[in-house]
Each structure stands twice: as C-alpha cells, then as structure tokens.
Write a protein that binds this DNA or RNA. Structure first.
Length: 731
DNA sequence: ATTTGTGTGCGG
DNA sequence: CGCACACAAATG
C-alpha cells in the first residue's frame, strides 16, 4: 500500500542513474514541508511523482489525497498530494505549491494504490486512471456535504441480524455469508438462479423451502448485510442505472435505514460528487454504481460485488480501458475484501478465476436449477417441419401455441435482436444488401409502408434500384421489434402489446405487472415482470450467434439467459422457446441451463487457440509509422508474439465504401454489415499490431508497453498510438 | 504541452 | 563577437 515513489524519470534504460540521496528540506516551521504530488499532465513519460514545497498557509490543508494546484512546465496544473515528507531526492530547490484546492482527501491511499495497479495492468498512466476514479470536484456540493457532515457525524448504526434465505438454494451460499459475517474475505463466482420477489398479496417465500428463490438484487443485499454486520463496507458494481435502481430497491427492503450512495455518472457532476463524498466520509457504507464506482472510496471495504460481468458496458471506453471486473479483482487482492462475481451466465473470465482456484463457485444443485428455471426448448428445423408448412416462419406454430397458452396466466416476453421496424433490407430478387447511393450505408424501413432510408445519413431512397440486378423492390433481412409487435398485435388483437428498447420512438420499460400482455424487447431492455413472465420467445437465434467473433456465442447465451431468467420456473409453468436457428452449443447450454459447463468449454477452447483470457493480449493501433516506432521501443520479453501490424478497417464508415459483397448468393445468410450509424468521417489509414504473451507474463507486458509509450512521448514522436490491453472487441 | 537551456549560423 | 533562431531536454 506504499504510494509510488518512482521519482526518477525513465529516459531510456541507458541513463538509469541511481536516485539522488534524499536531502532534508527546511520547512521554515512547517512539519513535513515536502508535498509529493502527481500532476495532471497527459504525457506518459511524466507519469511519476514530483516534489513541491508546502507554504505555511497550506500546511494543514495540503495533506495526502487532497487536490492542489502546482506550477508545472510554466503552467498551473491540477495535482494530487500523495505523500507529505521531510526530505526530497530532487537536487534543486523545490517550487512551492500554488494553491490548496480543497481539504477533502479525495484520493485515498487505498484508491491511489488501486489506480497505480490498474494503470500498470493496462499499460496506462496513473493520471488517466485517477481521472476515472475521482469525479470532478463540485464546489457547492462539497460545501453542502461538509457542513452537514459536521452536524451529524458519527451516528452509530445498528444492523438487523442478517437474513440469508436468498442464499439457501446455493451450494456454498450460506457458508459464503457466514464467512462475510465473520469478517473474512471469501471470493466467489456466483451463478444466479432466476428468482422473483413475491407479488403484493402473495405470501413471502418460506426460509426453509430450498425452492423459494429470491431475485438476484435481494441476494446481493443479503450478502451486503452480512458484511455490514462484520463492521465493513460494501461496493456493488452493475452495468446500467437500471441495475443500480434494482439493487438500491433491494437494499431498501433488506436493510431499511442503511444509507446507500448511488454512484452513477449519468446522475451529473453534483449528484455524482455528492455520492462520492458520502462514501468517502463514511456516511454511506454501501455504494452501488456503474463501472466507475469500482474505484469508489468505501471505507473499510469488506465486500465488492459485480453482477452480469459479461456486459460490455462494464469495460471503460476511455484509456486505459479497464474492465470493472478486473478492477475489483485487483482491489480484492490489494485491499483484502471479499469478491462476488455474479450473473445468470458465467463468463470465461469468471471461469478462469474458478479454475485458478482464486474464487469458489457458488451455484445451485441440479434439481434446484431445474425447478427454478423455465423449461427451455430450442426446436431444430426438423422438429418444426413436422409441425407443418410454416416451419420456416420467424415465429413458427409451436411458438404461437406457447404464447397463447401462457397468455392465459400472465405476460409473455418476446426478445428480438434488433430495434426498429425493418432495420436492414436487401434486394427482393438477388438479396444483395441494399445500400445508400450517397454514403453506402445500409438501408432500412422506419415504419410500415415507408420508403427505404439510410441508417447512416438518413437520406430517403425512394427511387432505389438494385445496382446488381436492377430490381426496385426490397425485402426484409432483419425484422425489428416494432414490426414484430405489429405482427403480434394482429395475431392477438385482445392482448396489449408493450415495446421496450432504447429507441427514439419509445424508451425502456422498467417493469410490467402480472396481467397478460405481450412484451417485445431488445436484449438488455426486457422489463421485469412482477411474479415472472409466463413464457418467453427468443427470436433471431442466428442473428446473435452467427457473428464471426469468438465471443459471439457466449454473448448470445448471456442475452438468452438474461431474458429467460425473467420467466417463472418450470415448477410454476414457465416456458421458453429459442428460435431462429441458433448455433447449437450455446443453444444446448440454454436448454440444459448450464452456464458453468458452457464457460468451461469456452475457456478450454480459448486455451487451445491461445486466446484471452487464457493468454494476455494487447492491441497497439495507430498510424503505421507510430505503431512501428512503439514496437521498436519494446524491450524484449520471453515468449512475446507480435502479430502484424496489419491495416485495420476504417474505424468509421468511409463515404465511398467498396461494394464488397458482389457475389453473395441468394439464400446465404449475409454477415452483419457494420455496427450502427455515425457521421462519415475520412479517417487516416491505421494499422494494428496484436501482442500475445503468456498470462504470467501479463504484468511484464504491461510494463514494457508503458515504457515504450513513455519513450515515444519523451522523444515527441508523432502520431497517437492506442495501447489496449485485453481489447474486448478483438476476438 | 511548455519552458528552459544549449548549440549553431549568420551578420556585424 | 553578438545575437537570433533551432533543437533538445526537462518539467520539482
């Protein structure tokens, strides 16, 4: 936990002189007159500490962890004090701090240490990580919080005796809670069961019935409660604000009166900073938030939880791109708290933690799983053909039957891969994907009867004609949620249809009640149904598994499980049907509800192919000369493979996209064209190299990459190179 | 990035 | 010899 004291610039290995002997500094009456600071500059080769003199007026304020301003390279810069000391190893006289910005120690020693570890792991700079960890200061909020804090500081809190019924169903669940309550720090990978909180009027689940499974947020709240009982704090990180709301609600029900800080970037600077301060000052011992909350300054941290860790929103999109799961794992190792990695699926990364025996698996025995999960069917083409001529329909007859039966007892969920009406169209005759004449973006239909329009630039293509065969008619190659809802509404005229998804037409619906209705939703936007859905139809199976990336089937399974987990258990008649020719391996994992088995198989496959997380990978991307020079600055590493560099597809669609699917044959499923809309910019051509090393060499690889980036920046070499460790979109 | 220090070239 | 500009190194 020692703060960094790498006060020596790294001007290449050649000039690695020994550090100057520390010299005592005359503080003119100031005790520990030297402030060791980290300065907010973006240059990798300046990623170390600098010493400044503390003027007497700032002596009591500029304490470790506080924000200050310093004169640096002729400009006033923001900085954080990381240490106060009486000596310096700097040889000339120290410049004074310019300003003590605030007395609040926002960068606690534990969080500083975590940031350093994350920066090292991801080959980034400390400051880049600190910027993710510490929200921007909001002065008026700070004043308000501090004033109130003095007023009601140190109010003792009594925690009710912990409940543990949500963990009864899991092997190792009660033991996990016991260890937490005893002040220990177990680590677990938790495969959550679908569970539903009782509807009002329904009796609460009996603690002694193992089949009575409670919803995941309640399980988290109970684990938190056990930790609070041991006198320690709790941090919960989830992918979205929707998840945050669910967890916060569960806390309110489970640990009433316990203050919970909700740390969500979407809340805006003032609220975010307020929540941060409440955690920092110990006013809230529980923090629930999205990815940046992984760094939250929870005092005496006893447990961190991450739920649905396969969601890509847990990966930070800004340099150095840390993933919240990894941040929490580093944190658990360094700060010594317990870690709970949970989800309906099990990610390969979590599987690795289990196989390394770093974490214990916590999951339900087979018979409990069978009762608590819905009955899942994934009819193959032959099964459907037996049912009659409409077997190839997107919603074949057996699916209609399930929906009809289920609607007698409750709501039915229909998961659709894409939002919109007809999000992709092709030539009706030759099935060539239809593209915009101007920018070559894919065409779509925005609503019934509308002319095709471009999903990139929005232009109408009323007079579209296929450049290959001349036909002017288009056909749907994807069907979106809006059109699906339309079809369902026609088939069930008496049943209300709800559409949920992040589009302009309608928002995400949070919950629906237990009355019969059809709920059409895109993955991740499924409303929670009180008491559970009676059934779910998962359409478009192939759309999610046919992507070439290695993670496609794991992601598909995660999405299916996420929807299926909202359905009542088999015991209560819940049914799920997976449709649309999904790949068989994830489909079988869903049918058997065996995410752990799937994850084990996936991890083995990745080890076989030398893919992450079995090995450590890093991507280096930028202009050709810049990438070459960075690779040139890399010090040798045993067993390091350098793949490439190779030209990388333009990150943004170019205005003149090549018609690359000229010979697509009718009937062949086309691979997805490109992500989504975006302003067509002309990017300069870039290359990407991929570095591969043994997992045990991961730390060394990170160090070498950071050194190489520092060397480039010290020499002011042109061109921005993006270094990304564990690039999520590569394999 | 910005500043500061050192070296080099050219005009006087 | 003196000054101006260029380049490199350091930034406390």
């Amino acid at each position: 936990m020692t703060p960094t004291s790498r006060s020596r610039p790294q001007q290449g290995a050649l000039l690695d002189l020994p550090a100057a002997a520390p010299q005592p500094v005359d503080g003119a009456g100031v005790r520990e007159p030297v402030a060791r600071v980290v300065v907010d500059v973006p240059l990798p080769h300046l990623d170390h500490t600098f010493d400044y003199l503390v003027p007497p007026a700032m002596a009591a304020v500029a304490l470790p962890g506080t924000r200050v301003q310093v004169r640096f390279a002729g400009r006033d810069r923001a900085a954080y004090v990381v240490e106060r000391r009486s000596d310096t190893d700097h040889h000339t006289t120290l410049a004074p701090l310019r300003r003590a910005v605030s007395p609040v120690p926002v960068l606690s020693p534990a969080v500083l240490d975590l940031c350093r570890a994350v920066a090292d792991r991801y080959a980034g700079t400390l400051m880049d990580v600190v910027r993710l960890a510490v929200p921007p200061r909001h002065a008026s909020t700070e004043k308000a919080v501090l004033d109130r804090h003095v007023a009601d500081a140190l109010v003792g809190r009594v925690v009710a005796p912990p409940a543990a019924d949500a963990w009864q169903a899991y092997t190792g669940g009660p033991a996990f809670l016991r260890h937490l309550a005893a002040g220990e720090s177990p680590r677990a990978v938790w495969t959550a069961l679908p569970g539903h909180e009782p509807t009002p009027g329904e009796s609460t689940p009996d603690d002694n019935v193992p089949g009575a499974v409670r919803a995941w947020p309640t399980a988290i709240a109970q684990a938190a409660q056990a930790t609070l009982a041991s006198g320690r704090g709790v941090l919960v990180v989830v992918p979205t604000t929707r998840h945050v709301a669910q967890v916060v609600d569960a806390f309110a029900a489970t640990v009433p009166g316990e203050p919970v800080a909700r740390l969500v970037a979407d809340d805006g600077p003032a609220r975010r900073y307020r929540a941060f301060l409440r955690a920092l000052l110990g006013e809230a011992r529980v923090v629930v938030g999205t990815r940046a909350a992984a760094f939250a300054p929870v005092t005496h941290l006893g447990l961190t939880v991450i739920f649905d860790d396969g969601d890509d929103r847990l990966a930070e999109p800004r340099s150095p791109y840390p993933h919240a799961r990894q941040v929490l794992a580093l944190r658990a190792e360094r700060e010594g708290g317990a870690l709970l990695v949970g989800g309906f699926t099990r990610t390969v990364e979590a599987q690795l933690l289990v196989e390394q025996r770093w974490a214990h698996p916590v999951q339900a025995p087979r018979d409990v799983v069978r009762r608590a999960t819905p009955r899942v069917e994934a009819p193959g083409e032959r099964d459907l053909a037996r049912e009659g001529p409409a077997a190839a329909a997107r919603i074949p007859h057996p699916a209609w039957r399930i929906a009809k039966e289920a609607l007698a007892t409750g709501p039915v969920l229909v998961q659709v891969a894409r939002a919109g009406y007809v999000p992709v169209v092709a030539c009706a005759r030759c099935r060539e994907p239809a593209r915009c004449r101007t920018c070559h973006g894919p065409l779509r239909l925005e609503r019934a009867g509308a002319a095709p329009s471009c999903s990139w630039c929005g232009r109408l293509a009323a007079d579209w004609a296929c450049p290959t065969c001349g036909d002017t008619r288009v056909r749907a190659t994807r069907v979106g949620s809006a059109r699906t809802a339309e079809e369902l509404g026609r088939a069930f005229p008496a049943v209300p249809v709800v559409v949920s998804g992040a589009t302009a037409d309608h928002g995400v619906v949070e919950t629906v009640d237990e009355r019969p209705r059809l709920v059409v939703a895109t993955p991740g936007a499924e409303p929670v149904a009180r008491g559970g859905y009676a059934a779910a139809l998962l359409l478009d199976g192939a759309a999610s598994t046919s992507r070439p990336e290695l993670w496609a089937s794991a992601e598909a399974l995660r999405r299916w499980l996420g929807a299926a987990a909202l359905v009542r258990g088999a015991e209560a008649g819940g049914r799920v049907m997976l449709l649309g020719q999904p790949a068989p391996v994830p489909a079988q994992a869903l049918v058997r509800w065996d995410p752990a088995g799937f994850a084990a198989r996936e991890l083995a496959e990745r080890a076989e192919l030398s893919f992450p997380p079995a090995v450590r990978l890093a991507a280096v991307q930028g202009p050709p000369a810049a990438v070459r020079s960075l690779l040139g600055h890399l010090e040798p590493l045993d067993g390091l493979e350098v793949l490439g560099p190779v030209a990388v597809e333009a990150p943004q669609p170019r205005p003149a996209a090549p018609a690359r699917t000229r010979h697509a044959r009718p009937g062949m499923p086309r691979t997805e064209a490109r992500p989504a809309a975006g302003p067509p910019l002309a990017p300069e051509p870039e290359v990407r190299a991929v570095l591969r090393a043994d997992r045990r060499q991961g730390a060394a690889l990170g160090r070498r990459l950071a050194h190489a980036a520092a060397a480039r920046s010290a020499r002011k070499e042109a061109g921005a190179v993006r270094v990304q460790v564990d690039p999520p979109d590569l394999w």
